[in-house]
Design a binder for these strands. Structure first.
Length: 119
DNA sequence: GCTTTGACCTTTA
DNA sequence: CTAAAGGCCAAAG
């Protein structure tokens, strides 16, 4: 959209970063997404690492990075937040339920961007 | 300008 | 079955 060569690049740190933020911000409250799903939407199915890395550079107060968890639903980047419990508390505040293992119920809160066909 | 690391996932041994 | 390495792209040293 628009013309990127018009010299409009102002707050755009990087298209990749913004792309991740958009997808994460697209996730409603009470829902959680996974790095793999986001990466897949970006076309970087095998490069899910960069998704998490992008979140590390993202501001947790600006981007709901707490809604992003790993494949197992475990809060891998919780230590990157203000406190180790911050991520969990925020998700609980959103209405997300946790298992006894401290993992998020992906079956209940996993936000799917599109119908993923498997097999 | 090259090397290392990074909140991961997938495949091969 | 479990364990290890590879892969991907990008930023910081």
């Amino acid at each position: 959209m628009a013309s990127p060569s018009t010299g409009n690049a102002l707050h755009k740190e990087s298209d990749f970063f913004t792309r991740v933020y958009e997808l994460v911000s697209s996730v409603p409250a009470g829902k959680v997404t996974t790095y793999g799903s986001v990466a897949e939407q970006l076309g970087l199915r095998s490069s899910a690492r960069m998704v998490g890395w992008a979140l590390s550079a993202a501001d947790t107060g600006r981007v709901p990075a707490h809604r992003v968890v790993n494949r197992f639903g475990a809060l891998t980047g919780k230590l990157h937040f203000l406190t180790a419990d911050t991520m969990r508390l925020m998700l609980e505040a959103e209405g997300v339920t946790f298992r006894d293992d401290g993992t998020v119920e992906l079956k209940l809160h996993l936000h799917q961007f599109s119908t993923r066909e498997r097999d």
